[in-house]
């Protein structure tokens, strides 16, 4: 990784962090748990890294590690979104 790439990635990091800080304002307390759960599902984005790392054909140690990562990340993503949806569903029914 050259210095230029690193700087670009750092720009991405800093700007995305500011967006993250700004996004969560004036959120009603009832939405705290679903919001936490929803962003937990997003943190499963590691699934993308796991897919790339699981790419090689040969079954080396690093491939096995990547496959394990892929399984756990999939659980995080799928489980996270389903759980969040169930929470919000309940929320809606309560309101009506």
């Amino acid at each position: 990784m050259n210095a230029e790439t690193l700087i670009v990635l750092l720009y991405v990091l800093v700007l995305a962090s500011f967006v993250g800080f700004e996004l969560i304002s004036k959120v009603p307390p009832t939405l705290h748990t679903p919001l936490m759960s929803g962003s937990n599902a997003i943190s499963g984005i590691t699934i993308v890294g796991a897919i790339v790392a699981a790419g090689p054909e040969d079954w080396s140690v690093s491939k096995w590690l990547a496959i394990a990562a892929l399984l756990l990340a999939t659980l995080n993503v799928v489980g996270g979104y389903v759980v969040t949806d169930r929470m919000l569903q309940m929320f809606k029914k309560k309101k009506k």
């Binding site: 990784m1 990091l13 995305a16 962090s17 500011f18 967006v19 993250g20 936490m36 984005i45």
Partner: peptide, 26 residues
């Protein structure tokens, strides 16, 4: 987000940073 730096993958950095920052505020 750190894994995104390891793999030079921007969607990991963005999504990771969003969760990291919004999570701290939450």
């Amino acid at each position: 987000c750190a894994t995104g730096f390891v793999l030079n993958n921007q969607v990991l950095i963005i999504a990771g940073a969003l969760v990291g920052a919004s999570g701290i505020i939450l």
